[in-house]
């Protein structure tokens, strides 16, 4: 793979994820949560809250944020940054929808891990 091209991997269909919901993708080095907002934006983040490791995929999705189910930390889905008084960041991954098919960037996956 060269630096100029991105290798997109198909991971499923947009409609497989409920609006204001999330699904998991398992990778050899951990789980990634793929979120779908009410406006059909998609975002991919590590499924691990930097606070106590809570599975963000299980949180309530509101606007373009998710609230961790364990202790209510809130993260912005596009930046992975903790909101409000909490400090922390979750890794994000490029993800896109092409004709209803969800694709995640393999390069970022490999590079980050």
């Amino acid at each position: 793979m060269t630096a100029m091209t991105t290798n997109w991997i198909e991971i499923g269909l947009l409609e497989d994820i409920p609006r204001e919901g999330a699904r998991l993708i398992r990778t050899p080095s951990g789980c990634i949560a793929v979120f779908r907002t009410a406006g059909d934006e998609v975002h991919a983040l590590d499924d691990r809250c930097p606070h106590k490791g809570g599975p963000l995929s299980q949180g309530i999705v509101h606007g373009t944020s998710v609230t961790c189910p364990l202790h209510n930390w809130v993260f912005d889905l596009s930046t992975g940054l903790a909101q409000g008084a909490d400090e922390g960041q979750v890794a994000t991954y490029p993800v896109r929808v092409r004709e209803g098919v969800l694709q995640i960037a393999a390069g970022k996956l490999a590079a980050e891990r």
């Binding site: 499923g12 994820i17 919901g21 699904r23 993708i25 398992r26 996956l109």
Partner: peptide, 16 residues
């Protein structure tokens, strides 16, 4: 069903 199953499982090769 979607609640209980991962959307996808990526193998090592695919991710690299």
């Amino acid at each position: 069903k979607h609640e209980f199953k991962p959307l996808a499982t990526l193998e090592l090769e695919a991710a690299q």
